[in-house]
Amino acid sequence: MKQAQVPAVLESVLHEIPGIQITPKEGSRVRVDVAPGALPAILELLKGQLGFMHLSAISCIDWPQTDEFELVYTVWSHEQKMTVSAHVTIPRDPGEYVSVYDIHTPAGFFERDIHEMFGVRFDGSPNLRKFILTSWNGPPPMLKSFDTLAYVEETFQWVDYRPEWLRDIEAKGGGIDSEGEGAPS
């Protein structure tokens, strides 16, 4: 794969930020590694000065080896035709970070999703209510420590299939559970 140069326009805007590391990646994407405290300012700078106004995604990666979460903010500029992924790492405990909803409205969805799936709390995010896992009370399932197979083994019982089941169901008048919890009131 061909590796691109760091675009001069990006370097000129970001070079003053201390500790920043800029790496060209595949295609038009540039990776920027920043300190957690500097990220909102960088997103603001990119949006204001270079037109990075489209937030494509916020992705979260769980790194139990270092006890950290990596958050990746992928933004696109319609003017520069360029993608920047800004990477920050935060400690898993307490797993808290700031919301960037005031800079990019779509962050609301991604932060809610990450909160639900990884348990990261975003301070200032407008809505961290459950969305997908509304009746789930277990740990955030996208954590590496959550083992889906072990959960299934512990929660459900393996039962061999018996063809008589179908006959039992038919005898009761079809697939409608008329006695259990799902019975129509």
């Binding site: 494509s56 990746v72 992928t74």
Partner: peptide, 17 residues
């Protein structure tokens, strides 16, 4: 490493990180 690839689907930007 990490990569972000995206396509213009019939609905808009579809990306895989």
């Amino acid at each position: 490493g990490e990569a972000y690839a995206r396509a213009e689907s019939s609905k808009g930007e579809l990306g895989f990180f």
